[in-house]
Structures are given as structure tokens and as C-alpha cells.
Design a protein around this nucleic acid. Structure first.
Lengths: 219, 219, 219, 219
DNA sequence: GATGAATGAGTCTTCATTCAT
DNA sequence: TATGAATGAAGACTCATTCAT
């Protein structure tokens, strides 16, 4: 490999621009896997391919790193929620379906799921972060979903239900599965449980079945 | 000193018997609140009202203590699952309702909910524990629920659905809420979210509505 | 040595009462020798014959230890100043002589001299400590001495001089020598400079000669 | 860019020549303020307006820098001592007065006073430097002063005293004040103590009064 | 059994020093 | 020559664990 290369590879590279993202990615993985306290900065650094000291060039300490991990990953999500003003001519059932599938695609299946697990696990030690997450992520998300449900009720498409509570209920299986995938699932990889898709399909079926007002039910 | 006492310090004795339970309770609280790594044995001991050294008279170390916390809390639960052979003449809908309400009463509302949160948070560091929990708690629980659903389908009370997946789905909101109550909820105490009861009611309504085959729906 | 001793010596001893004094003594030596920053807590612990962790059972950290070293050594000194109300029928010259000899015996020759050196060296990093030292040690000391000088002037024994300034001047050689003995002197041990006694004698002679009003000077 | 410039960037060049002096000045300030160990090279560099790496272009390391600071500041002083062969027709009292005033003007009031404080503080960590200072600065200085005193004794102007010891004694208040001004004085700026001038005046008065043989004392 | 003083391995954090740019 | 990103050894501090009392 290196035979033809006259210059030997340098001991390290200057990557000021990319470092933060690399460090945050490494830190997220470690924090999700082991939790805040059990994560050693040595491990984060090693996973990011730098020395421990380099971490401190970018983040003031372990706490700062944790906050940054959460903040940097969540902010794009928040922005997306803001943009997602569901003006559409689709049926409310279709909107609901799309919302759940969309949430899974954009959150449940991505590393953001790890963030959710992380925050649940560390809420006791980082109440500010937990609060931030709740106010900026959970609540808006629920409100968006509740809005869809209410639209369906107003249009007569859905029967009358507790929209606020239902927003939580409808999201629960997805959130729990997202968390599960980053905690217990890796320990039980051999068991081959119900797949994400199967879960999603069954859930959407169940939700719509319980919601839609139909003349007759031929099933 | 002790000469006149026929039974040697009965108060000591009684204490000695209670100690393990007191220590486990204190440890559970600490572990749930802060996580395994961030919990100091000093804190556990202080919360149990003993000195740090005393802990080691009952548990060999931090890991042992953790395992014991999980084991001791879970075993009664497992036993209960085993006993709960649902032979009943009630309708499947009624059984389902009872199961969910029962789970909430016997798990969701108790300190066992904390165990769930703890295991989710520490699965990465204690895969054996996570696996044990999955095999002995989660799976039997799901099977029990799936059994009820299948009974309802066989009897023509419920429509045909994916019973295995649905068992997970139906339990998800309860499990997530249980976890939530031990992590983010305490940080957002002022917000007064949807109450546990309201959530339960809406959920059971939704589930049964999506499940039961009805001639007409007068709602 | 240990041959006849059936019991082997324990790995460590319980010495709750004596530890603080032992630690402070060790810390004082290290701080005076090397300065605050260059002193490693490992060294302090080793010199006190304990492990590093033990230090933290008694002092919250390096800063606390430093403060304690200064405080504990200075407080007895302050108390002594307070008690030393020089009511005496001796001549003012005799009082002055006694004061200087006394200062040397009680401060200059003792480990308190090291404290003076330490504070001079670390004033920049511990301004509060420096201020405390100035207010509680330096000033009272100067005032005591100035009082003696003023008494001598009032009684006609001393000529009229700037008593405040002279108090500082008269103490300077002693203070500087005390500091010197803990900094440069150890590096130049072979040079055999003027001894402390010779310095003291010459100083007292000089001071009294410049102060006392005499009919004639037969020297 | 530089095409039209016949001499290649003269500003750079001039800078390059000044750099060492700028660095030494910055280092002196930092070392005096905080001590050797507590001084970060980052701070020195920042105070000199260069980057940390640049320091290493001029000095091999922190120790080297420290030595250079001491050496560069002291050498001119030593040279001056050598030149100062006190051949004068003035009275010995006048010479003595000039020496003390001169020392204060040339050392006590300048940044060299900081050097004295620095060496006192760091003697334990840099015995070689302390020794150098003692041999090349302190001793010659004392010898010079002792020479003046001896001249006065030989000429019958001064009474017979311990010239060697007195040389130290006479310089002590100035040295101590010089050190003080760089350590404790800044912490007690509000207290407005005796001014340097008042101290000097009182001291010279005291010294001469104790030294000169006078027929009568008209004071 | 109970205690808590003592220990020391493990981590976070700092900073002198190096070196790619 | 100048820079400052990167390094890694050193040192403060914590805490699970041991053990003298």
C-alpha cells in the first residue's frame, strides 16, 4: 500500500472543519450505548480517531459535549417540525398514515432514535436537557398529530375522540420501538421479533380502524 | 451489658432481616434516578440509613447490587405471570380491558415501572440483565396478551388481526408512559400533561373500538 | 525487625485525630519549597505518609488545603499578637530589643517564616489570602512596634522620627532574612553567610544607636 | 503583493529583532504575577501578541524561557555593578545615600524588582538560577555597599561596625519593599501604606544617624 | 454485625510541546 | 517565519472496595 509512497503518512491531520461533526457522532454512539456517566472521553476520542486532548479543543468538557450532542441533533428536527405545516387536500386518514410513516422514517429509523433513548435515560441527571427536549420536540410533535386528528373529526371523517390523548397514544408504539431498538433489541438480536414494518403496518391498520367512521365494515 | 437480655437484641435481629429490602429499595431509587454509573454507593447507603461498609455485608459489590435490585423486583412479577392462567368466562374484550388495567395497576403505577426504565437505560452495560428481562418479563407478558387476542378472534368477538404484533402495540402506550413517568415527567411537573387515567381510558376505548366486530356503530 | 512480632503490621492505621495536623505540616513544607502550583498532592500525601485519597477526606481540594495551611498556622500568631499588650516598666529601648528578638524567636526562626515566604510567592494567585495576611498579621505587627517607638518618643528616650515608617524599617531585615532562609539560603548552604545571630545583633545595635538620645557618644 | 518592495518586508524584519525582548517582557510579567508553574505559555504568547508556537522559535521550552528572563534582565545589572567603581571624593555618607537611592531607582522601582520576587519564589524549583542570582547579584551588591561602609570607617566618618552585616541590613528594607510591591501590595491597593519615598527618607535618615560620628547632636 | 477511615485504580482535565499547514 | 491544531504525559479528583476498630 505505502510502498510507492515516498512521503510517510503524517502523524495527524488538520481537520478543523470536520472534527465537530465527527466528535459528535462518536459521542452520540457512546452515550446511547453506555449512558453519560459510563462513557469515557477516551472512548469517544478513540472512536472519532483523535486523541483525548483534541476533544477539549472543541468542547469544554463532558457536560458540554453531551449538551452539544443533544442540541446539534435535535435542532434540525425542530426546524423540520416548524416547516411541516400540513396543508394538504389528502384525507385525514391519509395524513395520519403519512405522519406516522414519516415520523418513523425521519426519526424512528435514524440516529435520532438514539437521542430519544439517551434523553429518557439521562433525564434525571440533565433535567434541563430533558425539559428542552420535551418542550421543543415532544410537545410540538404531539400538537402536530393532534391537529391532524382534529381535522379529521371536524370533517366528519373520524369519530369523536380525545384528540390530545390520542396523539400520544398513536405515537407511543413508534417511540417505544425506537427506544427499544437502541437498548434491549441489540441484546436479543437472535430472537427475531416482529419487524419494524410489521409493527408499523399493524399499528396504522389498528389506528385507522378505530378512528374512521364507516357505513359498513365488510372485513 | 447484654446479660439480662434473654433474646439477644431483638431489635438488631429484626433490623438484620429487613436490611436487604431496605437496601434494595434505596438502590432502586438511586439507579432509576441517576443510572447505574452515576449512582454512588454512598448515596444508596445514606438513603437506606446505613454506612457504606454495611452494604458490602449484604451485597458483594455494585454490580451484584444492581443484579439483585432487578432480580428481586422482577421475580414476583414473573411468578404472577405464571399464575395468571386466564381461564374465565368473561368476554375477550373484558379480559383485554382487565389485562391492561391490571398491568397498569400492578406494574405501571408501581416501582416496577422504574425497573423498566432502568433496564432500558442500562441494557448496553448489562446485556445479561436486559436479556433476562426480555425473556422472563417482556415475552411472557406479550404472550399472555396475544393469547387473549387470539381467544377473541377464535370466538368471533374480535376481527382478524396480527395478534403477536398487536400485543406489543396494545402495551406500548402503557410501557412508554411508565418509563416516561420515571424520566422526563419529573422534569416537566408543572406542565400537567394528560393524566394516566385519561390516557388509559382513551387507549382502551381505542383498542376495543378497533378490535370488536359490531353490527352497527351508533356512536 | 519484624521477626519476633507474631502479628503483621496493618496496612494502615486509623488516625482521625492526628491526620489534619500531619497533612498540614506536610503541605506547608511542600508549598514553601515548591510553590502552590508545582506541589503535587501525591507528594503531600506521601510526605504525610498517607495515600492521595486520604487527603480528600480532610480537605476538599488543593485550594482548600492551601487556605487551611495558611489559616491554621496564622491564627495562633494572631491570637498571640492580641494578647501581647506590652505593659511593662522596662525602658523603650529594652522593649524594642525584646520585640525584635521575640519576633525572631517566635516567627523568624519557626515554620511561620515559611508561611511568609509562601504568601509573598503566591499573593498573585491567592489575593484573598494575601489580604488576610496583611490585615491580620502585618498591620497589627507594625502597629505593635510603632506603639513601642511612640512610647519611647513620648518619654524622651528616643528622638523624634517617623514611627510608622520606622516600624516597617526595623522589621524589614528580620522579615527578609526569614523569607531568604526559605528560598535562596538553601541553595547557597556552602557559602556560610552572616549568621542569623550576627545579623540580629548588628541590627539591634544599629537601630538603638540611631534612636536613642544620648548626652555623649563615647564609642 | 511584495513585488515592489526592494527590501523584503522590513516590518517583518524589525519585528523579528524585537520579538525576543517582547517575549521576555511578557514572560517576566506572567512569571512574577503567577509564578513559574502557574504561568501558561498560552498567556505569555497572548500577552506578547504572538501565537504559542512562535515562542518555540525563540526559546526551546518553558525552562529555557524562564532562564532567559532571569539572565537577560540580570546581566545588564551585573555589568553596571562592575562599572560602578566608586571612586569619588564625596563623603562616605553621601556615597551611602547615593547608593541606596541609586539602588532604588535602578532596581527597586524597575521591573528588576519583579525578578527579585520571582527568584525568591522559585528558588526551590530553580536552585541554579537562585545560586546564580546570589553569586552574581546579591553578593557583589553587598560587597559594593560594604566597601562604602568600610571606607567611611577608615576615614573616621563612620563609627566601627560590622560592615558585612550592615551592608545586608541597609539594603533589606529596600529589597523587601521591592518584593512586596510585586506581591502583596497589589492586593491591598486601597490601604495606601507608607509611600516608597517616605520609606526611603526615613531609612537613610536612620542609617546615617546610626553611623556617623558627630560631635554633638543638635536634633 | 456495623462503621467509616483508608486506599488506589480510574477519569476528567490541563498544558507543554510538536508539527502539518 | 508564523500559526494553531493535535498530541500525550501529568496531575487533580472521585469512588468502589477493603479493613482496622
Amino acid at each position: 500500500m505505502e510502498m510507492l509512497s515516498p512521503e510517510r503518512s503524517p502523524r495527524w491531520e488538520r481537520r478543523k472543519e470536520r472534527r465537530p461533526a465527527e466528535l459528535l457522532a462518536a459521542a452520540l454512539d457512546c452515550f446511547v450505548e453506555r449512558g453519560f456517566a459510563a462513557t469515557r472521553l477516551d472512548d469517544v476520542a478513540a472512536r472519532a480517531g483523535v486523541s483525548k486532548g483534541t476533544l477539549y479543543l472543541y468542547y469544554a468538557g463532558k457536560d458540554e459535549l453531551f449538551m452539544a450532542v443533544v442540541r446539534e441533533n435535535i435542532i434540525p428536527l425542530i426546524d423540520e417540525f416548524r416547516r411541516e405545516v400540513t396543508v394538504s387536500s389528502a384525507s385525514s386518514a391519509e395524513l395520519l398514515r403519512r405522519f406516522l410513516l414519516g415520523w418513523w422514517a425521519r426519526v424512528g429509523e435514524t440516529k435520532l432514535a438514539g437521542i430519544a433513548k439517551l434523553i429518557v435515560a439521562e433525564a434525571g441527571n440533565f433535567p434541563d436537557v430533558a425539559r428542552f427536549f420535551h418542550d421543543e420536540v415532544t410537545l410540538p410533535n404531539h400538537q402536530l398529530l393532534a391537529g391532524i386528528i382534529e381535522r379529521g373529526m371536524r370533517s366528519g371523517e373520524f369519530r369523536a375522540i380525545d384528540a390530545e390523548a390520542s396523539a400520544q397514544l398513536f405515537l407511543s408504539p413508534l417511540v417505544l420501538r425506537a427506544i427499544w431498538n437502541h437498548s434491549i433489541q441489540p441484546c436479543c438480536a437472535d430472537i427475531c421479533p416482529i419487524s419494524n414494518e410489521r409493527m408499523l403496518t399493524a399499528h396504522i391498520d389498528m389506528v385507522l380502524r378505530g378512528l374512521i367512521i364507516q357505513a359498513a365494515d365488510p372485513t
